[in-house]
Amino acid sequence: MTSKMVIRQPQPVMDAQESDEWGSEICDCFQDVPECCFAFWCCPCFACMTTKRYGQCLCLPLLDTFGFIPPINMSMRVSMRQRYGIKDTMCKDCLYATFCAPCSWCQMSREMSKRKIPIILISSKNT
């Protein structure tokens, strides 16, 4: 009689998502008044801090000043929608990034605070 031993490595698991919608609307900035004021009066600083919290380069949002459509704001929205499973359209992302930048950054910051899904980097070695 032969026996077979099966070894399975633990797989990364993502918590069940609360919703496939944004946790707040684009104009719900007054849910966090200090954050809203900071984003309105110093949007570049707020955008850099939000990007850093998201796990990206601190100065990445400063590239938004070089184009008509802010590429970093839009890219962050698309990335966040993908990470959190939010159903929305790239057309809305483009509109919000272009015409409502402070509100867009506030919405993304609120979403990160609400979801609180940690960023985990997994590395492996072949032995």
Results as ranks from 00 to 15, higher is better:
1 M>D: 13
1 M>E: 14
1 M>T: 15
3 S>F: 13
5 M>N: 12
7 I>H: 07
9 Q>C: 07
9 Q>W: 11
9 Q>T: 11
14 M>W: 12
20 D>S: 15
22 W>I: 12
24 S>F: 10
25 E>S: 15
26 I>C: 13
26 I>Y: 05
27 C>H: 13
27 C>P: 07
28 D>F: 12
28 D>K: 06
29 C>N: 12
30 F>A: 11
31 Q>E: 15
32 D>G: 04
33 V>A: 12
35 E>P: 03
36 C>N: 02
37 C>L: 14
40 F>M: 14
41 W>M: 13
42 C>A: 08
42 C>H: 09
42 C>R: 06
44 P>W: 07
46 F>R: 00
47 A>Q: 00
47 A>S: 02
48 C>A: 00
48 C>L: 01
49 M>N: 03
49 M>K: 04
50 T>V: 06
52 K>N: 08
53 R>S: 02
53 R>I: 00
54 Y>S: 01
56 Q>G: 05
56 Q>N: 13
62 L>D: 01
62 L>P: 04
64 D>H: 01
65 T>K: 12
67 G>Q: 14
69 I>C: 14
70 P>M: 10
70 P>Y: 09
71 P>S: 07
74 M>F: 07
75 S>N: 09
75 S>Q: 06
76 M>R: 01
80 M>P: 06
80 M>T: 12
81 R>D: 02
82 Q>N: 13
82 Q>H: 09
82 Q>W: 10
83 R>E: 10
84 Y>T: 01
85 G>E: 05
87 K>S: 13
89 T>R: 01
92 K>V: 06
94 C>H: 03
95 L>E: 06
96 Y>N: 02
96 Y>V: 05
98 T>I: 03
101 A>H: 02
101 A>P: 06
101 A>W: 02
104 S>R: 01
105 W>T: 03
105 W>F: 08
108 M>D: 01
110 R>W: 09
113 S>W: 08
115 R>I: 06
116 K>S: 11
117 I>K: 04
118 P>R: 02
120 I>W: 06
122 I>C: 08
124 S>C: 08
125 K>E: 07
